[in-house]
């Protein structure tokens, strides 16, 4: 009986101890015998971070918070137990954040280049990185409580503004506001009329545009037709014909060019002759101007002109006398 008691008690005690130890280890998610690595990060504040909270890398859990203690110079040292198989960022930074609304905090490991674009977080990391050695720099994102406080302050400010608006909104303000509403109503009618007129104008413009568009469409159709023709005219046989015609034209052009060259040569010789003639004429004219020769003397001596005029006058008088008295000058006989 006594031996049976001992065995039974021993079994129960062993099972009880095993339950407590194994259960605790299982719930703590401690991997016995695994090559876990311990790292340390430091923060100015860790919010509600507790031992056992998860450590995440790109959102995947790779470890847990092993310890949270106060360190020197007002730092909070956080021990992180990570799986040894994970490849960590080169310049690891630990960011503490509130994972849920219910105090579920976590540590996110990031590369320093991937820090959130928050000046406060960057300042915290920069401060924690100074003379940190092997300790990872860390920063804490604002938690829900802080955000709620901020929202509460904003709500308070809104309430203050609402109160002031209520104070300013007395009976005279109401009358003025009513007048303003009347003015606005009148202005609205005017604007509505103007809008109606503008709408009519716009309707006309739209009609014109329609017409123009139709003309453009017709033009486009004609252009398309022309393009079709041009396109059809450029089939293979016609192109050959055009090329052969162009050859013929080229030959003719070449002959014409030869003729033109000969003509130009003849013209050049004619030009030379003409230049010579002009030169001679110029010398003749020079002598005439100088009063040399018959023409020169004629051009410069008015006596000849006067004599010629008198002669013409005498001739006219003579002609008139002949016409008046033909028998004085002419004798007519048959035999």
């Amino acid at each position: 009986m006594k031996r049976a008691d001992e065995v039974l008690v021993g079994v129960v005690v062993l099972i009880g101890i095993a339950l407590a130890v194994v259960g605790s280890i299982w719930l703590s998610q401690v991997r016995l015998g695994a090559s876990d690595i311990r790292h340390e990060a430091r923060f100015r504040s860790v919010g509600l971070l507790q031992v056992g909270n998860p450590v995440l890398l790109r959102g995947v859990k790779i470890g847990r918070v092993e310890s949270v203690t106060l360190g020197r110079n007002d730092w909070v040292m956080v021990g992180l137990r990570l799986k040894g198989t994970q490849k960590l960022p080169e310049r690891t930074v630990a960011i503490i954040f509130s994972a849920t609304l219910f105090g579920d905090w976590a540590v996110q490991l990031l590369d320093r280049h991937d820090l959130p674009n928050d000046p406060d977080v960057r300042r915290q990391v920069q401060e924690a990185a100074l003379n940190a050695g092997a300790v990872w720099p860390g920063a804490a994102l604002p938690d829900v409580g802080q955000l709620t406080q901020q929202a509460g302050r904003i709500a308070g400010d809104l309430a203050t503004i609402a109160g002031r608006v209520q104070e300013a909104f007395d009976s005279s303000s109401a009358e003025k506001l009513r007048g303003a509403f009347t003015d606005i109503s009148r202005l609205s009618k005017v604007l509505a009329n103007m809008a109606s007129q503008q709408q009519q104008v716009l309707t006309r413009i739209g009609g014109n545009l329609d017409t123009g568009t139709a003309s453009l469409a017709r033009f486009a159709t004609a252009m398309e037709r022309t393009a079709h023709r041009a396109d059809s005219a450029t089939d293979k046989a016609q192109i050959q014909h055009i090329l052969s015609s162009a050859d013929t034209v080229g030959v003719a052009l070449r002959a014409t060019a030869t003729d033109l060259r000969s003509l130009v040569g003849a013209a050049r010789s004619q030009q030379e002759s003409f230049v010579r003639i002009v030169a001679r004429f110029d010398s003749v004219m020079g002598r005439v101007n100088a009063g040399e020769g018959t023409l020169g003397r004629l051009s410069r001596d008015t006596t000849l002109y006067t004599e010629a005029v008198a002669t013409v006058r005498q001739m006219r008088l003579l002609l008139a006398d002949v016409q008046a008295n033909p028998r004085r000058y002419f004798q007519f006989s048959v035999f």
């Binding site: 005690v13 009880g16 339950l19 259960g23």
Partner: peptide, 13 residues
């Protein structure tokens, strides 16, 4: 004193 924690461990589980 010794068995109460054992019983409570069973009870917790």
């Amino acid at each position: 004193t010794l068995m109460f924690p054992i019983i409570v461990a069973f009870a917790m589980a």
